[in-house]
């Protein structure tokens, strides 16, 4: 097989991990909330999904339903994290950055606790469901057909999010809330409700990324340990894609390729690279993000800037 094609085919599923986190974060940021808890939320999503899989092991539930239930559990886990974050930042108006970082620390730690607990208590039993996440017609590991259910789910979610944001009244209202909450409030939009719902649904979507990474992309017990690092890349991807979910589909695959560049580029170019140079290549996604930030900041095009109300708590003018 063409090594380049193989490279792309491996990058797509990895990219979907970013895509989940990125789509979720875009929805949250469009409501004016910078959720740095995304890495932690993705971890929690993985843990919740795996825990549900473990509980369903040995029951008579059909495989399709097992997949759906575990996805729902990951989603709900994310929503709960999003609800805590929203309560702190929307209702109590806590600093968004501090709250988000706390959510990440909490999520990563809790995930370690849950995953270790499961490991000590019957091993890595949840991995039995790995095949359920594939379509029955998936044969070879090196073809598009091998892409699992959640790869398509990620694409669908991103497209739906893009449609909602640009073409519907709900999307218009959500963008107004993130751009200028006072204006949105003045025309009768329920700012608090929009912020809560967008943040919670966004967190739920991001959480799916964790489950996807463990059960589809990595398929190993150790996988949960790398979710946090990928979560930060998802946050960076939001900037890279200029807050547009449909661009993030391409962006996520590109990020997947860049992330794998360390191991793939040398084989592709048939050169010998010192093993110590690999981390340098792994920096590529971040370097690209910085370049995008510089380019968009210089161009100052208003459409490419973050939502104007991002990071600012909204106080209704009490007079």
């Amino acid at each position: 097989m063409n090594p380049f094609l193989d490279y792309i085919l491996t990058s797509i599923p990895l990219g979907m991990t970013f895509l989940y986190g990125c789509t979720g974060e875009i929805l949250t940021e469009k409501a004016g909330h910078l959720n740095l808890g995304i890495p932690g939320i993705m971890c929690i999503g993985g843990a919740c999904g795996c825990f549900a899989l473990k509980l369903m092991n040995g029951t008579n539930i059909p495989p399709a339903l097992i997949v759906i239930i575990s996805i729902l559990c990951a989603f709900i886990g994310g929503i709960l994290m999003g609800a805590v974050y929203s309560f702190l930042t929307v209702t109590l108006k806590a600093n968004q950055n501090v709250t988000g970082l706390a959510m990440t620390t909490f999520g990563v730690g809790t995930t370690k606790f849950i995953m270790n607990g499961m490991a000590g208590n019957g091993g890595t039993i949840y991995l039995y469901a790995l095949d359920y996440f594939r379509f029955p017609f998936a044969e070879s590991t090196n073809s598009l057909k091998y892409n699992g259910v959640m790869v398509y789910l990620a694409l669908i979610i991103a497209l739906v999010a893009s449609f909602v944001l640009t073409r519907t009244r709900v999307g218009l209202h959500l963008r107004a809330v993130g751009e200028n909450p006072a204006t949105a409030d003045a025309v009768g939009i329920n700012v608090t409700m929009y912020k809560y719902v967008a943040t919670c649904i966004g967190s739920g979507i991001a959480a799916l990324g964790g489950l996807f990474y463990i059960m589809d992309y990595a398929g190993s017990y150790e996988a949960y340990k790398s979710i946090e690092a990928l979560g930060w890349l998802a946050v960076a991807l939001v900037i890279f894609t200029l807050w547009k979910p449909h661009i993030s589909i391409v962006g996520s695959i590109l990020f997947g390729m860049l992330y794998l560049a360390g191991s793939r580029i040398p084989t592709l170019l048939k050169i010998q690279l010192d093993i110590s140079a690999t981390p340098l290549l792994q920096m590529l996604p971040y370097v690209v993000t910085i370049i995008v930030l510089i380019v968009t900041s210089v161009s100052k095009k208003r459409e490419n800037q973050p939502p104007a109300g991002l990071g600012l708590p909204y106080f209704r003018e009490e007079r």
């Binding site: 009244r169 751009e179 200028n180 204006t183 949105a184 939009i189």
Partner: peptide, 17 residues
């Protein structure tokens, strides 16, 4: 009270149900 990034029409229709 206008959203800078929106068009005139988008601002006008904002919040109308």
């Amino acid at each position: 009270k206008l959203v800078d990034l929106f068009t005139a029409a988008e601002n006008i229709v904002l919040g109308v149900k």
